[in-house]
């Protein structure tokens, strides 16, 4: 699992490459929280374009970040999720809290 991030328009864009499971969740959580607390970002975009696998541990990570971001009035958007990742997103009910976008550009427009 590789994690990259950048800031754009008061928005933290996090790209997770590889697999998001219980084993990799801690590092993802740590990186995002550090940036959210110290950086200027109010909103969060997950770019899942290179995410090959996610299970319920990933759902926990997204819900946890949603709580932080929404508490400061920000939005969370999930971009570029593949079909299998999207199925678990649907099942979890998380899409009632966050929006999904087909591209990173569309995600930025939703913020």
């Amino acid at each position: 699992m590789q994690i990259e991030y950048n800031h754009q328009k008061k928005c933290l864009i996090v790209t997770i490459e590889g697999e998001l499971d219980h084993h990799t969740a801690a590092a993802v959580r740590e990186t995002i929280d550090k940036e959210l607390f110290s950086g200027p970002a109010k909103n969060l975009i997950f770019d899942f374009g290179h995410l090959t696998f996610m299970d319920s541990s990933g759902i926990g990570v997204i819900i946890g970040r949603y709580k932080t971001v929404s508490a400061q009035g920000g939005k969370v958007v999930i971009a570029c999720a593949n079909q299998s990742v999207e199925r678990i997103l649907h099942l979890s009910g998380i899409l009632k809290l966050t929006k999904v976008a087909r591209t990173r550009g569309l995600a930025l427009e939703m913020i």
Partner: peptide, 14 residues
Amino acid sequence: EEERSGMGFTVMES
């Protein structure tokens, strides 16, 4: 408190 969502069994079932 450990950010578990309680969805594991639901995922297995579905």
